[in-house]
């Protein structure tokens, strides 16, 4: 699924909205996440996942083609951690559960 398909799907399900507005809505969401990360802030979306920024220290790298040593400066990279609910859904209570036919109700203790 690409962004235009996501927009089309949401526009289909919400006939009272113009496609143009759905486009704005979807862009507003990803722009807001991007802006937040660019300020070094976290984005927490319970059930879906959390975006954060990780710091990578400067290091001595190597050009894989020439073997030449190069300095890689420190950088900040975006990082995503999948939320628990989505992780569980990927490993299917519902449809598409080709995994672990035994241990169906094998829960981890507590919560």
């Amino acid at each position: 699924m690409i962004k235009s398909e996501l927009i089309a799907k949401i526009a289909d399900d919400n006939p009272h909205l113009y496609q143009r507005d759905v486009e704005r809505i979807v862009n507003a969401i990803f722009d807001a996440i991007t802006d937040s990360l660019a300020k070094g802030n976290r984005v927490e979306l319970r059930g879906f996942g959390a975006f954060s920024v990780k710091h990578r220290a400067a290091r001595a790298g190597r050009n894989p083609r020439t073997g030449e040593q190069v300095h890689v400066r420190e950088k900040h990279v975006p990082f995503f951690k999948t939320g628990k609910e989505l992780r569980d859904r990927l490993n299917g209570e519902d449809e598409a559960a080709p995994i672990a036919p035994d241990a169906a109700g094998d829960t981890t203790a507590g919560f």
Binding site: A28, D31, S36, G40, N41, R42, L45
Partner: peptide, 13 residues
């Protein structure tokens, strides 16, 4: 360093 949540995304929308 505050955290963005669903409420903030809803505000952007």
């Amino acid at each position: 360093s505050d955290t963005l949540t669903r409420a903030d995304l809803a505000e952007s929308v």
